[in-house]
């Protein structure tokens, strides 16, 4: 199966559906009106999206990146994708959405560390003001052989990396998830190697595909998806995409991931999607498409080979390590 990139002017039927756009337009107008009144009355201005509660409408609606307007499959209903989340900080099962509402996502400060000129801390609002926020519809393939399609809002990781100005010593980018025992009950399971850590090479990070996600379904990112800011790497198995990122480090050594440390034979550093390489306990040839009851064949690089295969052209693609 091959996913065709649509020309830039193409808008799929689904996206023509005017409801959200329509509602957003009204919200934009309302927001402008409020801002005008507020400015006139000296009340200040509307807060940017990052400072609003998770789940609130993202206004104004960010532009939809035409290259990623159509994932080749229907968008998974939010009721489904938002109730099936691997987020071990809140529990080892997937029904953590209610528990995750305690996540303290606002205000949020990101630590930028390591070999980068802009190492230091930055508030999420300030960061968003510098980044080209946009909407992209991505396929997500979990290592557990299920998949979904989510319309994310965010900005390319590459933009953040360029802004941070890493030095030549930075070979990898390491992501660290919040680990807060007070609000995250899973952290009490002291035998897990908290905090959750994941990483990519600097070349992978500079690819246009990796996305720093701060919203979904037209809203500020709901907490169970890893609010207020998470990574999404659509050509890798889902566990690589760290949630609720508080620290981004530019490092020399390959970071040891949470799952890699626990079971390196099943969840390695690369974890690129490939239907030919089975998980020890199940085949990766197919995926169960959430919300449909159907199965679809899994595609190498999760169908994003055009964008990312070049990253691995010097590596031995027949080695299992690249796929786990």
């Amino acid at each position: 199966m091959h996913f065709h990139r649509r020309p830039s002017w193409h808008i799929p039927e689904r996206e023509v559906t005017p409801e959200r756009v329509f509602l957003d337009r009204r919200a934009v107008l309302a927001g402008l009106g409020f801002a005008g009144v507020a400015a006139a009355s000296g009340l200040g201005v509307a807060r940017p999206a990052a400072a609003r509660p998770a789940g609130e409408a993202w206004t104004p609606a960010p532009p939809l990146d035409p290259a990623y307007a159509d994932a080749g499959r229907a968008i998974t209903p939010e009721a489904v994708s938002g109730s099936y989340n691997n987020f071990y900080e809140f529990g080892t099962h997937k029904g953590i959405a209610d528990a995750a509402q305690k996540l303290p996502s606002d205000p949020w400060t990101l630590q930028i560390e390591g070999h980068a000129a802009r190492a230091g801390e930055i508030g999420l609002e300030d960061l968003l003001a510098k980044m080209p926020v946009q909407e992209r519809v991505y396929r997500h393939r979990c290592v557990e052989a299920w998949s979904m399609v989510v319309p994310w809002i965010g900005f390319p990781l590459a933009e953040l990396v360029k802004w941070a100005e890493p030095t030549s010593a930075a070979k990898y980018v390491r992501f660290e998830t919040l680990s807060d025992e007070k609000t995250m009950p899973g952290i009490r399971q002291s035998w897990y190697p908290w905090p959750y850590v994941e990483g990519v090479t600097i070349e992978e990070a500079l690819n246009p595909l990796p996305f720093m996600v701060t919203g979904a379904y037209g809203k500020v990112l709901p907490k169970q998806f890893g609010a207020p800011i998470r990574l999404h790497l659509p050509w890798k198995y889902g566990f690589k995409s760290a949630k609720s990122v508080i620290r981004i480090s530019f490092v020399e050594e390959q970071p040891m991931g949470f799952w890699q440390e626990l079971q390196g034979s099943e969840y390695g550093f690369w974890a690129n999607v490939n239907p030919e390489f089975s998980h020890p306990r199940w085949s990766q040839a197919q995926e169960r498409v959430l919300g449909t009851g159907d199965e679809a064949p899994t595609v190498i690089w999760n169908g994003y080979g055009e964008e990312v295969a070049g990253l691995y052209k010097d590596m031995d693609l027949s080695k299992r390590g690249l796929w786990f």
Partner: peptide, 11 residues
């Protein structure tokens, strides 16, 4: 309801 058994009812 559609989600009584979660996102993957058969599973």
């Amino acid at each position: 309801g559609p989600l009584a058994l979660g996102a993957e009812p058969i599973h």
